[in-house]
Structure formats: structure tokens, C-alpha cells
Nucleic acid binder design. Structure first.
Lengths: 223, 223
DNA sequence: CACTGTCAAGAGCAGTGCTCTCGATTTTGT
DNA sequence: ACAAAATCGAGAGCACTGCTCTTGACAGTG
């Protein structure tokens, strides 16, 4: 019963996966703009209309690829973390692993950290996967003596920081949380600028600058 | 002679401008992806093929809009700078003027600081306009006593920093230059995250966080 | 006045996302 | 075991896109 039912459903699941794989392959070649449902179908030896049995629209396919990409870069960041050892070295390793994934999958990266594609994608599905890189960085700080930093934090930001402190379960003052957010911003800001060509003419091979930034931001958050 | 010739050329220049204006209008509504040459022509009461007399391709039109956008955000940053007064306040004013332009023209902003559109746009035309915001920030530092910052800077980055020091004509050590680049990255990284929805769930109204970041980065570069 | 270059317009090509219908097959309920 | 129901791939077709090519009208030049 479940065997027969899964006969269909397994075929369906497999084909769904094949479609996503082929779409990802094409994404890597021609980018999100050039991704064509008809081309994907053609490559899979099926007709374009049949594809709509599996994805209701091109945007839904892209949204699924977005979620996958968030998880992929999140996993890259997590496995880049040695898990033990000097916190600053772990921090740096996560930064570099994240950047390396981005450079290896530029179009997938652009899909998630570039301009949003249509109007918007559903945020609900992407919120949890999107947080994985940030959480990997936060994880380094737990069970670690942070240099306490104080400074004036405006009331609204202080409230936001305290909410985050509770959600993350970390021991850090509002200024430190704000700096963590700045470090997170710096990480992806630097990857964006590097990948999208904004560093051309200033720090063209950006490797050393990126590493330098990672270290400085580690100090900046009190690590 | 020049009068009659300019009669034609003036008509041509005017129409070229009208096309760009209409394209910019549509860009603001439907984004770069949705920008359609046929729709632009339709709105202007002409036929699509006639448009190719003025722009050889859709990409060329977009490239022109990109250059315009770089200049617009650069001008916003420059006029946001009061020019005199407390350097830190000038620095903050530039940050805020830049962000406000971005929030007022999200699609134009995405055009220049989001994912690069097709394969690439010609970098040569965009290099100078793209530097205007950064130069506005640098201008605040000239004729100002900077707190000297020393720190280990790897050799490659040090060389890049020294090249920049000469090009910009500023008096600053390599560590300061590196931090300036980080501040520049932070500025646009924060605007990106804000505009593209990455701050949702952490610092959702990002105004205070942005201002806070601006101040902290001012200290960070030694201002 | 004839000539040359510029222009808008139209037809047309190849491609796109998406919808609908039509048989064929598979799964399900009795 | 057989009929009903759900699911599937295929095909035709719609409205749209960027872009090319040709045609006929107009303006400026010798």
C-alpha cells in the first residue's frame, strides 16, 4: 500500500529533485535572470508544461533554490568552524569558509545576498536557513570570555539588542550585540563588494583585505 | 549650419533623454528585471524598433541608467555633507544622506549595489561615478587631525593601501586606510541588508542601528 | 534639384512564462 | 476484480519579450 503509493510519490520526489538539480546547474551558468523553465525541461527531455506539475511557477522554483542556497552557505560556515581551539581562529575560519562558498557559487550567492528577485520571496521559509551563518559566528562567542564593551546605545537599538540577547542565549551587553550585527554586516558587505566588482581599483585581490577585516572585526566585538 | 545640424541633434538628444526618463520611471515601478523596451516605447507613443536608433540594446540602456544612478547617489552624498563643522557630524550626515537616497530609489540602488545584471557592464564608464560616495567620506578626513592607528597590516594589503594613499592624497597609515575601506564596506553592507530585508527579525527598523554604526565606524577609522 | 543620411514604422523571428485540453496511466474505493 | 478518481506527460496556444530587416517618408547638402 505504502509501497505502491510511494511508487508514484517516489518518482515524483525524484523528478522534483532532478528539476532542482538541473535548475541549479543552469543557474550556475546563466544566472537567475537567464534561468528558463523551458530550457530546464528541454534538458530533462520533457515538455515545459509538464514542469508545472512540480513547480507552480518559475518564482516558486527560484524560491526553493534560495532556501537551498541559504542552507548550503550556512552549512559551509558551520563545517568551516573547527569547533574547538582559539576563538579568534574559529571566527576567521568561518569568515573564510563563507567567502569561499560564495566565490565557488557566485550566482547562488547573488540569489540570496544580491537584489531580491521579483517583488519579494516568502520570508517565512527563508528566515531560519538565513540565520545559520550568523548563528555559527555567535556560537564561537558562547562559553568564551568576551571583553566587555560599554558605550552609549540609543534606546530603540538597546531594546532590539536585548531581544536578540534573549533569543540567542548569549551573555553580552547591548553594545556588543550591536557590534556583532555590524560584524555580520561587514562579512557579507565585503563578500558582496568582492563578488560584485566594487573592490576593483582599490583592493583588487581582496583576500588579504578580507582576512584583515575578519581579524579586526573579531577584536571589534571583543573577542 | 550648426544651427540646422543641431536641430536634428537637439531632437535626438531630447528624445534620448525622454527615453532614459521613462525607463527610469518604469525601473522605479517594476525593477530592472521588468524593464521592457517595448513598454518604454509604447509609453512614449513610438514603436519598439524605433528605440534601437537611440540605444543599441537593452543592456546599453541599463548601463546608462547605472551610470546615472552612481552619479545621483554620489551627488546625494556630496550635498549631504555640510562641508564645515564637526567632522564626525559631517561623516554621519553623509552616511544618512546616502542611505536616504537608497531608500528613496530602491530599484536604482539595487541596479548599482545589488547583483550585477547580465554578464557584466563596462567598468570603465562606471569607475569614476562609483567612487563619489567614497570620496565624499574621504574628503571629511582631509585637513582633519586623525587619531593615528597602528596595527599589523599584511604586505599585500599594505601595498594596496599605500597606492590608495597616494591616489587620494591623504595623510594616513595603512591601517587607517584599511579601516576606511571597512567603513565604506560597512556603509553599503548595512544599506544592502536594510533594503534587501536581511535585518528583518533582528534590527527591523534599522534607523538607530544605522546611525549607531555610522558613529562607531567614525571612531573606528580614528575620527 | 537630385542625393545622401536619418528616422519611424511594420513585419517577422526565436524565445519566454503560463494555461488549457486531451488522452494515457496509475492509484483508490467498493 | 472492476470501475471511479486522481495524476501524469504531451501538445497547442496566448501574450509577451529583445532584436533584425526592410520599406517609405523626411531633412539637410552639394
Amino acid at each position: 500500500m505504502t509501497a505502491t503509493r510511494t511508487a508514484r510519490e517516489r518518482a515524483r520526489a525524484e523528478l522534483t529533485q532532478e528539476i532542482k538539480d538541473e535548475a541549479r546547474r543552469q543557474l550556475a551558468e546563466v544566472g537567475a535572470n537567464g534561468l528558463s523553465l523551458r530550457a530546464v525541461a528541454r534538458e530533462l527531455g520533457m515538455v515545459s508544461s509538464a514542469l508545472y506539475r512540480y513547480f507552480p511557477s518559475r518564482d516558486r522554483l527560484l524560491t526553493d533554490l534560495i532556501v537551498d542556497a541559504y542552507n548550503a552557505i550556512g552549512e559551509a560556515a558551520e563545517t568551516g568552524d573547527p569547533g574547538t581551539g582559539e576563538p579568534r581562529e574559529r571566527w576567521l575560519a568561518i569568515w573564510q569558509a563563507t567567502r569561499e562558498w560564495a566565490k565557488a557559487h557566485p550566482h547562488e550567492y547573488a540569489l540570496i545576498y544580491g537584489s531580491p528577485i521579483p517583488g519579494y520571496q516568502a520570508p517565512q521559509d527563508t528566515v531560519a536557513p538565513a540565520a545559520r551563518v550568523a548563528l555559527a559566528l555567535v556560537k564561537v562567542l558562547t562559553h568564551t570570555e568576551l571583553r566587555a564593551i560599554d558605550g552609549d546605545v540609543p534606546p530603540g537599538l538597546r531594546a532590539q539588542a536585548e531581544t536578540l540577547t534573549k533569543a540567542l542565549g548569549i551573555v553580552a551587553g547591548p553594545e556588543t550585540v550591536a557590534r556583532l550585527l555590524m560584524a555580520w554586516t561587514q562579512l557579507f558587505g565585503a563578500i558582496n563588494f568582492d563578488l560584485f566588482g566594487q573592490y576593483v581599483g582599490s583592493v583588487d585581490p581582496a583576500d588579504e583585505f578580507f582576512t584583515h577585516s575578519a581579524r579586526r572585526m573579531a577584536e571589534f566585538v571583543g573577542l
